[in-house]
Simulated assay, not measured.
Amino acid sequence: MQRTVFRNDSPHPALGIAEDGSMEPLYFVIAIMGCGDAGAACQQARVEPVQYRSALECQAAMPAALVRNNDLSFPELTGACQQRGVRMARVETRDRG
């Protein structure tokens, strides 16, 4: 009988490993959130087109992104870095003997 083992042993946090061993990139985008007064009832209003390689790069770009998107009609704007792309895990099978 065989057992399937799922592992994510990616050497870099922004990369996933496909079944064939190739790397699949992950990236981050800034979602601009429009909120009511005092940050209530936020909803995604826009997603910036720029892709960042890390969460830190994304967070560092947040203030400028909020300024670029000040045309939205909400009492408050905030941003959220969202991870995109597909993280893959290598699948290994072993005999359960």
Rank of each mutant, 00 (worst) to 15 (best):
L72A: 05
A60Y: 06
I30R: 05
R94K: 10
M23N: 04
R7L: 11
P13K: 08
V5F: 05
S73K: 15
Q51R: 15
D20V: 07
R87C: 04
A45R: 14
Q83I: 11
P75K: 13
S22F: 01
F74E: 04
L56W: 15
N8K: 07
A14S: 10
R96H: 11
G21P: 02
V47W: 04
C58N: 13
T78W: 12
S10P: 04
L26G: 01
G36R: 10
A60E: 06
D20R: 07
D71N: 15
C58Q: 11
A64E: 11
Q82Y: 05
Q43L: 10
G79D: 01
L56K: 14
R96Q: 11
V67L: 10
V5R: 07
L56V: 15
E76N: 06
R96D: 07
A14M: 13
M1R: 05
V67G: 03
M33A: 01
R7P: 00
V86G: 00
A80C: 14
Y52H: 03
R46S: 01
L26H: 03
D95Q: 12
I17C: 00
D95C: 10
V5Y: 02
C35Q: 06
F74K: 03
I32M: 05
D37P: 08
D95R: 13
R84G: 13
D37K: 15
A40K: 15
V47A: 02
T78N: 06
S54Q: 08
P63E: 03
I32V: 08
R68H: 02
C42K: 03
S54F: 08
E92Y: 03
R3H: 09
S10W: 09
N70V: 14
R87Y: 08
C81N: 01
R7S: 00
A64P: 01
A65K: 00
V29W: 03
N70C: 09
A40P: 06
G16W: 05
H12G: 02
A65G: 00
D95V: 14
V5W: 05
V91N: 00
C35R: 03
R68V: 04
P63Q: 03
E48I: 11
T4M: 07
M33S: 01
E76R: 09
L72F: 07
R96E: 11
V29N: 10
V86R: 14
A41C: 12
Y27P: 00
G85T: 09
A45T: 09
E92A: 01
S73G: 05
Y27D: 01
C35A: 08
E48F: 03
C42P: 01
R46H: 07
E92P: 00
V47N: 05
G85I: 15
I17T: 00
A40L: 14
T93R: 09
E24S: 11
G39F: 08
Q59P: 04
Q59D: 12
Q51M: 10
P11W: 10
D9E: 06
A55E: 15
Q2T: 11
F74Q: 05
M23T: 13
S10F: 06
Q82G: 05
P11N: 03
E19Y: 14
V50C: 00
Q43W: 09
G39W: 05
D95A: 10
Q43F: 09
R53T: 02
Y52A: 01
E92V: 05
T4R: 07
S10I: 12
R90T: 09
